[in-house]
Design a protein around this nucleic acid. Sequence first.
DNA 1: CGATAGATTGATACTGCTCAATATGGGTGG
DNA 2: CCACCCATATTGAGCAGTATCAATCTATCG
Lengths: 243, 243
Amino acid sequence: MNSNDDDAFEAMIRKLDRLTTLDEEDRKAIAALPFIVRTAAAGEYLMRERQRETSCCVLLSGYACRHKTTVDGRRQIVSFHIPGDILDLQQLLFAIADHNVQTITEASYVIVPCEDLKRVAATRPNVAEALWRDTLIDASVFREWVLNVGRRDARARVAHMLCEFASRREHAELGTPERFELPMTQEHIADATGLTTVHVNRTLASLAAEGMIERRGGGVEIADWQEMRRAAGFDPTYLHAAA
Amino acid sequence: MNSNDDDAFEAMIRKLDRLTTLDEEDRKAIAALPFIVRTAAAGEYLMRERQRETSCCVLLSGYACRHKTTVDGRRQIVSFHIPGDILDLQQLLFAIADHNVQTITEASYVIVPCEDLKRVAATRPNVAEALWRDTLIDASVFREWVLNVGRRDARARVAHMLCEFASRREHAELGTPERFELPMTQEHIADATGLTTVHVNRTLASLAAEGMIERRGGGVEIADWQEMRRAAGFDPTYLHAAA
DNA sequence: CGATAGATTGATACTGCTCAATATGGGTGG
DNA sequence: CCACCCATATTGAGCAGTATCAATCTATCG
């Protein structure tokens, strides 16, 4: 076992531990899971809609997103993922994927066979609860996204997306919400907010003009966290204090 | 125990049975759950955002929806519910509600204390799996709704909402998708699709003009199911064949 | 140094919103 | 049984927020 493997265990157990309380037996059961660590280039698909998947992944480093498309090819990103996130838990119980998972940056991740994880969930109620809770948080975040694209204007929508990302990043202990680089392009932001890239560009420009964000070549930083929260109408309750 | 109570057991067990395979022990554990049957008038709240809830409900008759609002009071419905649906499973693991649940029509429902349901889930893996699967389907539907409000135009959005409702109704064995009354007002449809009531009215009028739906005083019926599916770009995969 | 993805900007079009008025119809008190 | 009332649906006119289309600019990378 190399240090990469240790990282992998570490990430999964820390994640599940944040979700519920695991005992020594639970940890052992997780540590005994077979897994593979892999890396992916930016833009690589980890899962495709309609495809049959038999394993599920945990992101170790880098960023990813899930997305769906309409029949005429318009793309909607439904979530962004940060290190520690479990990417396709639904494959444990569904045979066919209903959305795509794609990396945003270079990424490394662990693959665990569904069968094995399912077995651990069936025998260790704490683990089952942690995974279930993760699913419930996912669902809560999706509800907020429906509200975001359905009832907020472009400015609040973009601001909200940035706040959520900052907040989740903070909870996952990946840094402060005050100042950091965003990994995604304006096209990603557009597809996540239901806007066009052109309009996202203009919206970001206007947020920057108001001093809420700062931009330097490609990346964006949140400069005024308080003001952003207000502009977004951001209330992190729906994140249920989890990454 | 009166016939109402029998209905309550019936509904819960049938629902969970559709989600996974329950054995006799599982059924007994569910049948032993304490519960209360209640009725609600149209428009009554069963759960409120930020409120602490200690029980969870299953809808027996009537229709309900879940919704959230922005800080400036704009409402977004995030799901519609039909008889048999479990309404607030997330309260099993979250203390604070992140959205509202409100009836659309008169309704009757069962209330089960979270504690007891949680205990059954912890001891009966099949039950836990059924509930978890229900949560995963919920999440999948939310993803589709994000796509719906984010990337479809008004016409496809409304059509998609109607198709989903018809389809779920059919899976729950509540009738055919070809022809039935919708219980919700145009305002509900507007809040579910991220449109205004005025625009929903016009969109429905245009769908009716094209012969896809028929309207008689308040209600709407789907007249041309095939054409609706096409207009909506509706593919029921995301429902994972569940009600 | 060219290639390429991503960002930026301008001009114009259009979808869906807002405001405002009117119609309809089911339910209720007298 | 009627008249009224309220929620809901419908319609019209004008406008606003975003989309679209089309260049151009800017970094980064091999």
